[in-house]
């Protein structure tokens, strides 16, 4: 995935079954953000792989004051990339099992 300066990782091991997973997000390179970023630390949250939209979580982070509106897209994309990777890994595991 593209280096957005925002890192998103699993906050727990993926058992491949749960649809709601814990993710942790933090800014690795604040120079890649457009707005001035107040270093708040790593933000942990749960994300439903089937129901939720990464951009909506990014919007909530903006509303909570973690990021500026101008960086919402980059945060949303970072979450989206990680979620896509998790889904891809799961599909690969399932197809291997067949």
């Amino acid at each position: 995935a593209e280096d957005t300066g925002v890192r998103v990782e699993l906050a727990e091991e993926d058992d491949g079954k749960k649809t709601s997973i814990a993710l942790r997000l933090w800014v690795e390179d604040q120079k890649k953000l457009k707005g001035k970023y107040k270093d708040s630390g790593a933000i942990e949250f749960t994300f439903d792989l089937n129901k939720e939209v990464p951009e909506a979580v990014a919007q909530e982070m903006v509303d909570s004051g973690f990021f500026l509106e101008t960086d919402m897209k980059i945060v949303g994309k970072s979450i989206r990339d990680r979620v896509a990777l998790i889904k891809w890994r799961r599909e690969r595991t399932i197809s291997r099992g067949k």
């Binding site: 890192r7 933090w26 690795e28 390179d29 604040q30 120079k31 708040s40 630390g41 790593a42 933000i43 942990e44 949250f45 749960t46 979580v57 909530e60 982070m61 509303d63 909570s64 973690f66």
Partner: peptide
């Protein structure tokens, strides 16, 4: 503890904690 909890108006909970230094890129 330096961990804080933020609950958004949509009911989502964010748990904020310091990033381990080993996980930060050199600036």
């Amino acid at each position: 503890s330096t961990t804080t909890h933020v609950v958004t108006s949509a009911g989502r909970r964010f748990i904020v904690s310091p990033v381990p230094e080993s996980r930060l890129k050199e600036q």
